[in-house]
Computed example of a mutant assay.
Amino acid sequence: MIETTPSPAKGIALKLAAVVGFVVMQAMIKAVAPHVPPGEAVFFRSAFGIVPILVWLAVTHELSGGLRVQSPLGHVWRGVIGTTAMGLGFAALAFLPLPEATAIGYATPILVVVFAALFLGEQVRIVRISAVVMGLAGVLIVLWPQFGAGAGGTEALGAGLALAGAACAALAQIQIRRLVGSERTSAIVFWFSFTATALSLLTIPFGWVMPSPTEAALLIGAGLLGGVAQILMTSAYRFADASVVAPFDYASMLFALVIGYAVFSEIPSASTLAGSAIVIAAGVLIIWREHQLGLERRKQRKAMTPPG
């Protein structure tokens, strides 16, 4: 039996563990990025990420449910967009410091609000509009040195790849919102990893390489760690509401700063720190507003429920 008793402390601990796992995974990918193509990195991340996911599904007795789908094309579409986002993000790591790539990735929840209004018809009021504007301004502050005068071509390329990856990740989140209405979370997690593994094989003609033993170990470790982090993140929402654990996504900047400095000798610029602070504030504001809207919807449903 899976424990489902609410425990905010446990949910937060699981979310922080997941965040650490994802940042370390990114650092592993960044370490091999100068030699290993992003498509090959996506293969290792996805293929070896399936292993802990299958173990998790078996232990939680959700293996059959995790393999059963109601909307195969929906999973394929989510896989294509998500795999593209992953590949772009991995490619960006070859050109950007880890903190900057992390900061640009914070554009994802901001863009989710925009895309939800465009593609799902969600109503966006003044609070979330203000948060979106503030968040995009923060992203521009982070991006400005890469595209401004004196910037090198590799930095601009890396920033463009990271921003495109964030946009694709936001579109993937929109597709997930569509899938959750008919699909189990376990199915969404498993079939994304499977689809990403299959799609990554299409990049073989574009120049896969034979990784060294060290690179192979890092790639396999990134895959396994990514799968474990995915399980930890999913499990965190079993114990606490999304509004409680979601803000801890932004702890990734702290870990990225520490790992970037300790492993890659990267020192973030003032614009990266300032822009990140603005984007984080905007993201927290969106999370708070989503929580308020959720409370309002629950009150409305309760008021509409006829007395028994």
Rank of each mutant, 00 (worst) to 15 (best):
Ala262His: 12
Ala151Val: 13
Thr185Ile: 11
Ala262Ile: 11
Leu218Pro: 01
Gly165Cys: 06
Gln173Val: 10
Thr234Pro: 15
Pro205Arg: 09
Ile220Gln: 02
Ala164Pro: 01
Glu266Tyr: 10
Ile176Pro: 06
Ile287Met: 13
Thr185Trp: 11
Ala217Glu: 04
Ile174His: 01
Ser252Phe: 09
Ser252Asp: 15
Leu157Lys: 00
Leu254Phe: 12
Ala159Cys: 08
Leu257Arg: 05
Leu257Met: 08
Ala216Val: 10
Ala240Asn: 13
Ala196Gly: 10
Arg289Thr: 12
Leu257Ser: 07
Leu179Asn: 05
Val263His: 11
Leu201Trp: 04
Ala162Gly: 01
Leu179Glu: 10
Val209His: 08
Ile280Thr: 01
Thr203Asp: 11
Ala229Cys: 09
Ser271Asn: 05
Ile267Trp: 12
Tyr237Leu: 11
Glu155Ser: 15
Ile267Gln: 11
Gln230Pro: 14
Ala217Gly: 09
Ala166Asn: 10
Ala222Glu: 00
Ile259Glu: 03
Ala151Cys: 11
Asp241Thr: 10
Ile188Phe: 06
Ala251Pro: 14
Gly148Pro: 02
Val258Gln: 00
Ala277Cys: 05
Gly260Val: 06
Tyr237Ser: 12
Leu161Pro: 04
Val189Gly: 06
Leu199Val: 00
Leu225Phe: 00
Asp249Val: 02
Ile176Asp: 11
Val245Leu: 09
Pro213Cys: 09
Ser271Gln: 06
Asp241Val: 07
Ala240Thr: 07
Met233Arg: 12
Thr272Gly: 04
Gln175Phe: 08
Ala229Gln: 14
Ala240Cys: 14
Leu219Gln: 08
Val284Lys: 09
Phe206Gln: 07
Gly165Thr: 05
Met210Gly: 09
Leu224Asp: 01
Ala159Leu: 10
Ala167Cys: 02
Ala162Met: 02
Leu254Gly: 11
Ile278Tyr: 01
Ser235Pro: 15
Leu219Ala: 07
Ala156Glu: 02
Met233Lys: 15
Arg184Glu: 11
Pro247Gln: 14
Trp208Ser: 01
Arg184Pro: 07
Asp249Asn: 12
Val180Phe: 12
Cys168Asp: 04
Ile176Asn: 10
Tyr250Arg: 02
Leu257Lys: 04
Arg238Tyr: 14
Ala162Ser: 01
Ala172His: 11
Thr185Leu: 14
Gly152Thr: 08
Leu273Cys: 06
Ile286Phe: 00
Gly207Phe: 06
Pro268Ala: 07
Thr185Lys: 12
Ala166Tyr: 13
Val244Phe: 06
Ser193Met: 15
Gly153Tyr: 13
Tyr261Gly: 13
Tyr250Glu: 01
Ala187Met: 07
Val279Asn: 00
Arg289Trp: 13
Ile176Trp: 14
Thr272Met: 05
Gln230Ser: 10
Ile278His: 04
